[in-house]
Design a protein around this nucleic acid. Structure first.
Length: 439
RNA sequence: GGCCCUAUCGUCUAACGGUUAGGACGGCUUUCUUUCAAGAAGCAAAUCGGGGUUCGACUCCCCGUAGGGUCACCA
């Protein structure tokens, strides 16, 4: 087999979309699997809607997802006008296209393709034989003028000139294929192989778009998803690797990818499964990485305290921005400063104010015996466990935990105590006792 | 509407003529547990409908139905 060449040709008329990202990913995986390469080019023949800003967004997204590519030379279709003009001339010269006066609006002369009105059939790598009767296409327009080509002409020219062997694109392009085959055959080009991948749908089963919430790659980046998780998830949408694995590394995806195994039907984007996958990746990340994200997001207070929060954060978040949410909801504040206690909540369900106060007093004594250096959670637990077992764990430990956190939900009291240290622990227990005395 | 594509649990999917239709996410239950989270165990949940072909259809064929895509001087 000749060298595989694929391409990813977005038009920079919008932000880098999830659907585009998956198309890019499949082109990349296919090329990488076969030791080939993927070209990137920008289809900016619609000059009015194309923006540099969007180009940059696409480039940044590709880099973030670690989808590598070769830049076409030149990168933009707007830089290849002479080439298109030559092809247009060739087409006109051999009678396959002609200039025509445009009736509608009368904006000058356009170039129309002379439709041979045949049947065009191609074998799609995913869908098998697809047949179109091109008659209804009429003599479609391929250029606004000799210097202003339209999509179909430009695509055919570019794919040919860069030696593209496989065109892997969204299903929404399937009916464009007939026009492009007609043009390419009129030009005498070799036909590439086509593979039309199914679309990504929103939960309401329509094409995924902005109104369904986050649809751009950059939004997922902002929300704190890991690029590996997003790539992994996108690859699984419409394709199952032969190994049946659900969590695959970049290298595994490349090794297992098979375009002919891609499904024919559209898949609904399930944010819950993406979150789950993302959590799987976060679980494996280093303590350093979590510390870095946490310090930045919580607000860099005491780094040594945040370092102790790492295991706690690791098991509670799906995406990095969950740290922001937790911060906003005050789920970290008691690690940094004494909590405000609601007197009615100190005793908990398994105790009353008077006994809770007794328990706290005993706990204070017990914990005072701990070494002055800050003990770890195991040592703290050991110091009070026997007493808690004896008096009832719920009755003893709820007041302790509440005294330390001031919250109805939190990690266990030993973990909290280990983070805030011996002195703060004793102080908070004392504070809770004092409040209890007042009621 | 024309043309094209598609159809297994709520969602992503396995099965490639013979299985009690399997797995994952989510959900629910139980367990662990002072609470939360995590963990462990378990449960519910699907072949769109109708005809064929066949000893036997999720699987092959036809017809419906439903969903999607596309019908630009956008890409």
């Amino acid at each position: 087999m000749n060298k595989v060449v694929t391409r990813f040709p977005p038009s920079p008329t919008g932000y880098f979309h999830l659907g585009s990202a998956r198309t890019a990913l499949f082109n990349y995986l296919f090329a990488a699997h076969h030791g080939g390469e993927m070209y990137l080019r920008f289809e900016d023949t619609d000059r009015a809607r194309s923006k540099k800003e969007y180009e940059n967004d696409i480039l940044a997204g590709l880099d973030w997802l670690q989808i590598s590519y070769t830049k076409a030379e030149p990168l933009r279709q707007s830089e290849r006008l002479p080439a298109y003009r030559a092809y247009l001339h060739a087409l006109i010269k051999r009678g396959a296209a002609y200039e025509a006066e445009e009736a509608e609006g009368g904006k000058g002369r356009v170039v129309r393709f002379k439709n041979p009105n045949t049947r065009v059939a191609f074998s799609d790598l995913i869908r098998g034989e697809v047949i179109f009767d091109t008659t209804e296409l009429k003599d479609f327009i391929i250029a606004r003028s000799l210097d202003d080509p339209l999509y179909h002409l430009a695509v055919v020219a570019d794919d040919h000139d860069t030696g593209v062997t496989h065109i892997i694109r969204g299903e929404d392009h399937i009916s464009n294929t007939q026009r492009q085959i007609l043009i390419l055959e009129a030009l005498g080009f070799k036909r590439p192989l086509y593979a039309h991948i199914p679309l990504i749908l929103a939960p309401d089963k329509t094409k995924l778009s902005k109104r369904h919430g986050a649809a751009s790659v950059n939004e997922y980046r902002q929300l704190g998803y890991e690029p590996e998780a997003l790539v992994n998830y996108l690859a699984l949408l419409g394709w199952t690797p032969p190994s049946g694995k659900e969590k695959l590394s970049h290298a595994e995806l490349i090794a297992e990818f098979d375009i002919s195994a891609v499904h024919k039907s559209a898949a609904v984007f399930d944010i819950e499964k993406l979150k789950w996958l993302n959590r799987e990746y976060i679980r494996e990340t280093s303590d350093e990485r979590i510390l870095e994200e946490a310090a930045r997001r919580i607000g860099c207070k005491d780094q040594s305290i945040i370092a102790k929060l790492v295991p706690f954060i690791r098991e509670r978040i799906n995406v990095w921005s969950d740290i922001d949410t937790m911060t906003a909801e005050g789920e970290f504040t008691y690690f940094f400063k004494d909590p405000d206690l609601d007197p009615s909540k100190i005793a908990g369900k398994r105790s009353d104010a008077a006994t809770a106060r007794e328990h706290l007093a005993t706990l204070y004594t017990l914990l005072s015996k701990l070494p002055v250096r800050n003990p770890d959670a195991t040592e703290i637990k050991a110091a009070v466990w026997e007493y808690a077992e004896d008096k009832g764990r719920g009755a003893v430990l709820w007041p302790l935990r509440y005294a330390l956190s001031g919250r109805e939900k939190s990690p266990d009291p030993f973990a909290i105590s280990a983070v805030i240290g011996r002195e703060a622990t004793l102080q908070r227990i004392k504070a809770a006792q004092t409040i209890l005395k007042d009621i």
